[in-house]
């Protein structure tokens, strides 16, 4: 899914909800996943002027989950450790986006090269574990 402007966020959230509903994820886990997705898509728009998001339903060890991959070609993150700290923000926000999103999902992976872009992959399992 391409994200280029703010209005794309609501349809994207709805798609995530569709995927989560399809595998029978509970409401609380759906809400966590969608909220995390919402934080990450905002970062993507704000710092990289948008990008691509891949939505997948995955299975591992008899577990089903939703995996979202956020790919942008923005400025990248110079200090990932710092970016993952609560309250750190280079913009004018609360600085909860990245660390908060990480807390909300089961698996979180961030790869970034300054000048080339950032890829964030999050996975949330059906039972939230």
């Amino acid at each position: 899914m391409q994200i280029v402007r703010e209005q794309d966020v609501v349809p994207f959230r709805n798609r995530v909800k569709e995927f989560a509903t399809k595998i029978g994820m509970s409401l609380v886990n759906q809400t966590k996943l969608i909220t995390a997705a919402s934080e990450l898509v905002r970062n993507m728009l704000k710092y990289a002027n948008g990008g691509k998001i891949l939505l997948e339903i995955i299975s591992k060890n008899a577990q089903t989950g939703v995996r979202l991959t956020f790919i942008d070609e923005g400025p990248g993150i110079t200090d990932i450790k710092q970016a993952m700290q609560d309250g750190f923000s280079t913009g004018k926000s609360l600085g909860l986006g990245l660390p908060g999103a990480k807390r909300l999902v089961n698996e979180f992976d961030l790869k970034s090269k300054p000048g080339e872009g950032t890829t964030v992959t999050v996975t949330h399992w059906k039972n939230g574990r």
Binding site: V28, Q30, L94, R103
Partner: peptide
């Protein structure tokens, strides 16, 4: 506020 939203907000750190 929906319960699921409250749970999520606190885990988010807000």
């Amino acid at each position: 506020m929906q319960p699921a939203v409250a749970i999520t907000l606190v885990e988010l750190g807000l």
